[in-house]
Amino acid sequence: MELELKVRRRIYDLIRTFPGIHLRELERRPDIVIGSLQYHLHYLEKKRLIYSFKDEEFVRYFTRDRILEENEKNILALLRRTGCRHILINLLQNEGMNNGELSNAIGLAPSTTSWHLNKLLRGQVITKIKNGRESHFVLNEPERVAELLICYKESFLDSLLDNFAEMWDLKKARKKD
């Protein structure tokens, strides 16, 4: 799932940077696996993130300006926090992880992970499922989170604030998404 997300984001970024880029040009990129390119393009078109049209012998691709719904804006706001973003990526890969597993996976202290989980719970992005004494977390709309992760682009300010916050998280080992 994570690899798929990365490839889709890369393709989406390329189309956003070079509007009208065609299939052959995308294939020439060394970091794009040709075999799965059409599958990912089809996925992005189906999810209305991009659109294409035939220009003589080329099919050209463009990103679609998406009008965000209220809950999508809410998810995007949470994606700006590195901790929340890493939790969501992990939950996309392994649904039902608990606090301890998430804490290990993202390299944050359990208390900090819990703080981020509460933010996500309040934002109704995830749901807590109690199983005896343990709590497991699942995404409410995994497909939507995956789509928004493709659109999300870290700004310079985001990374600056992340780095600053990180300085004060002693137990955190940064993981890049």
Partner: peptide
């Protein structure tokens, strides 16, 4: 300013 913005976000 950076500290304040980080606090507002976090």
């Amino acid at each position: 300013t950076i500290a304040l913005l980080t606090y507002i976000r976090e």
